[in-house]
Design a protein around this nucleic acid. Structure first.
Length: 777
DNA sequence: ATAGGGTTAG
């Protein structure tokens, strides 16, 4: 019986004391210890000292002497416990399965092991097995099994378990109830989380942190900050977990000044030495585009784990600082010897996608396979996007087909890739496959798909073939009509939808309101906004307020829109103000524009779009100096205008153009066509609308600058290469400019062609000198 | 004697 090699030393201090029979040189057990009791004592010592190697020695000894053991239950229980303690979960499970009637404590231990380390489904399966065998779970069981539900975002199982909790009368237990609040909050049912939280007789800091984290993670910035105040009013002082819980929404909302205040609080409270707090702060700064501060925090962190490395790398990728991201990744792996996690890999793949670096992307794919990460849904989705962005659609689709855990995002990535690579019909086929496989499209799916439905007929095809028309498919159709400016059709479809007996949801109303807004139907929009609240009992969200502000302001009711914003039941976000600012540009209202810009700046760093809008407002009334100053501020703050790009598809190949582009092989004939069109357009009464050209230059020069806007180049190219009567479809990344909009009307008259421009906000159908948007966009 | 809350990502 060799249990310890001769000369091997015991590594655990104090171990000798509990194993009296064990000597260093020669291994010997005294007979009186070779009993159940002896084994239990030894195993407990191993558990306490987390000694796996010593525990295995005892385990071997038990196997060799099993004929002397009277009661296996307790010994297997301890052995399983030992392996759990030492993170050998599968080993523990094998022993656990051999125990004839495990105690509740033992079941809980096993469930906990899976709830902490995964696979999370195992925790849930064990819980149901326990019930099946007639074992009654106790208040310790629930926090574990609910944690597994949270990790899986499985609200259905969570609800079932909630019913069990009520049957057992455990819902009043503060631990169990907090776990329920956490489960609902993490799964996105914030209403249920809040209801349970409000019903708690006593709310301690853990309960508060759970509800705050839920709101924060679901990007409800204002509600999160309100809860933070309420918590303090209830006499509870925020701790480091509170800080960490709040930070994600602060970053998401770009609320830099709030973030700095939280940073200061953390310094005062000495929280900032913690890796978790440091990571939260770093991420917040990166999300607010303050990379230098983020990096400062990263560099000063005393201990670093994979998560903070991933956060810093992800921050660089988000801010388009790809070189830094790749350098840091290299350092993490090769200098610090840390293994990339699925999250790290997802970020690095996103960097490859942004750089269209296929070679690096492929080598990461190899690494994924080697490390088994190709089974991770998020990493897989990032890989799909990378292949799609690099134009490698076959690789993308091939990977999707092999994916065992695909979801809506996987399909959306493929579809957006198809659309961007000129395979619109393929995108629609995949859309159908996705729905047949039981996946529901979300907003991202629709955004990816809409450019593919250049002709409404295509969408109608898709719709008619749907076997089951649900809320989502109705919404899709309504959105489709709305974005094409066909509000009447959208409203009649909405009517049909209600007749069908299904209930419209909040998305339906976003579709209805934006359809009204695109067509300038103010009265109808107001009617449905009220009806949604009163008749359909749907509380308007930020998106609905944005639509309403857009609707009122676009139609010229700027003051009404302003008052509407002031009467909102929650704080308007930047998008609400941006909608108003866009209308200030259209209606050339400088005073309000300045006021709105002030509000926008109060809300934190802003996107380029708002600078451009304000600068355009000044230009439109000839205040060139003010316009230039705004551009200077923009540049000073490091915002670069994303260049206007337009695309047009000719026999399956996508041609892309940027403003002033001369790089296309057909440039010479494009230029000739444009000059030709200009002469004819002027003859019909066109004059260059130079309001939006920054420099105060000669009339003729303005004309030439405007003539080479990307959409005009793309259209000229389309006229030359697409034979009539096929309409010319151009896609533009930004909103179409005022001059182009009026020029294209003339072009349809000159060429007798139908021209469709899908810009950042909608489709414009130009035909016979008019656009169906009625100049609302 | 086994309990609830915190950071990164498509």
């Amino acid at each position: 019986m060799i249990l310890l090699k001769v000369g091997e030393k015991l590594k655990i201090p104090g171990f000798k004391k509990v194993i009296p029979g064990l000597s260093f040189g020669r291994f010997k057990l005294r007979d009186e210890f070779e009993s159940d009791h002896w084994y239990v004592a030894q195993l407990e010592a191993c558990i306490q000292s987390k000694s796996l190697s010593q525990g295995k020695i005892i385990h071997q000894h038990i196997i060799k002497n099993n004929s002397h053991i009277k009661d296996f239950t307790i010994i297997l229980d301890k052995l399983a416990h030992l392996y759990v303690k030492c993170n050998e979960i599968e080993h523990a499970r094998r022993l656990f399965d051999k125990i004839p009637n495990p105690s509740v404590v033992c079941w809980n231990m096993m469930i906990r092991a899976y709830a902490w380390n995964g696979p999370f489904q195992q925790a849930i399966d064990l819980y149901y097995k326990m019930l099946q065998l007639g074992v009654t779970p106790n208040k310790f069981t629930y926090p574990f099994v609910l944690k597994a539900c949270s990790a899986l975002q499985d609200i259905q199982v969570g609800q079932g378990i909630h019913e069990d909790v009520e049957k057992l009368g455990l819902e009043m237990d503060i631990y169990v109830c907090t776990a329920l609040v956490d489960m609902y909050a993490k799964c996105g049912d914030l209403f249920q989380a809040q209801t349970l939280f409000n019903g708690m007789s006593k709310r301690d800091i853990v309960a508060w942190n759970a509800i705050i984290a839920g709101f924060s993670l679901h990007t409800l910035h204002k509600e999160t900050m309100e809860l933070l105040v309420q918590m303090q009013q209830a006499g509870i002082i925020p701790n480091s977990s509170t800080v960490v819980a709040v930070l994600p929404t602060v970053g998401q909302a770009n609320a830099l000044s709030q973030g700095k205040a939280i940073h200061a609080y953390s310094l005062r409270k000495m929280f900032s030495d913690s890796v978790v707090v440091g990571t939260g702060l770093l991420d917040m700064y990166a999300k607010c585009h303050d990379l230098s501060y983020a990096r400062k925090i990263f560099d000063r962190m005393k201990q670093k784990n994979e998560i903070c490395w991933s956060a810093m790398i992800g921050g660089y990728v988000t801010c388009d600082s790809m070189t830094n991201a790749l350098t840091l990744f290299d350092e993490m792996v090769h200098v610090y010897g840390l293994n990339p996690t699925p999250v790290t890999l997802a970020s690095i793949l996103r960097a490859c996608a942004k750089l269209t670096d296929l070679i690096k992307g492929q080598s990461l794919h190899c690494y994924m396979i080697k490390s088994g990460m190709d089974f991770d849904t998020t990493v897989g989705n990032s890989l799909i996007s990378m292949y799609a962005k690099c134009g490698m659609m076959e690789d993308a689709v091939g990977f999707l087909e092999e994916m065992t855990s695909k979801d809506t995002v996987s399909y959306s990535g493929i579809m957006s890739g198809c659309v961007q690579n000129g395979r619109a019909e393929k995108a629609l086929i995949i859309f159908r496959q996705m729905q047949l496989s039981g996946f529901y499209p979300d907003l991202a799916t629709m955004m990816a798909l809409l450019p593919a439905c250049s002709h409404l007929a295509a969408l109608q095809k898709v719709f008619d073939r749907m076997h089951k028309r649900d809320v989502v498919s109705w919404n899709t159709m309504i959105i489709g009509y709305g974005i094409h400016g066909q509000c009447t059709e959208a409203l009649s479809l909405f009517h049909e939808f209600q007749v069908s007996g299904l209930k419209p949801d909040d998305v339906t109303f976003v579709a209805i309101l934006s359809a009204c807004s695109h067509s300038g139907l103010v009265k109808e929009g107001k009617y449905w906004f009220n009806a949604m609240n009163q008749d359909f009992k749907i509380t308007p969200r930020m998106a609905h307020y944005i639509c309403m502000v857009d609707l009122l302001a676009r139609a010229g009711n700027l003051d009404e829109a302003y008052i509407f914003i002031q009467r909102m039941p929650f704080e308007p976000d930047i998008r609400v103000w941006s909608a108003l600012l866009a209308a200030c540009r259209t209606h050339k209202n400088i005073e309000m524009g300045e006021e709105v810009l002030k509000r926008i700046q109060e809300l934190g760093p802003e996107s380029t779009g708002n600078f451009v809008l304000m600068s355009n407002i000044y230009s439109s009334v000839g205040r060139w100096d003010d316009a230039a100053q705004i551009r200077t501020i923009q540049q000073h703050q490091g915002y670069k205008k994303s260049p206007g790009c337009s695309w047009v598809e000719v026999s399956g190949v996508i041609h892309g153009f940027i403003g002033g582009d001369q790089s296309h092989p057909q440039s010479a004939s494009i230029n000739k066509k444009l000059q030709e069109l200009l002469v004819q357009m002027k003859r019909l009464g066109y004059s260059a609308d130079s309001n939006f050209v920054l420099h105060d230059v000669e009339e003729e020069e303005k004309e030439q600058i405007l003539l080479y806007h990307s959409e005009k180049i793309a259209i000229a190219f389309g006229i030359l290469n697409i034979s009539p009567p096929k309409p010319i479809l151009v896609t533009k990344n930004l909103r179409i400019c005022v001059d182009c909009h009026s020029a294209i009307k003339f072009m349809t008259l000159i060429t007798n062609r139908e021209i469709i421009v899908r810009d950042a906000s909608r489709f414009h159908h130009f035909k016979n000198g008019i656009c169906n948007c009625q100049d609302f966009w």
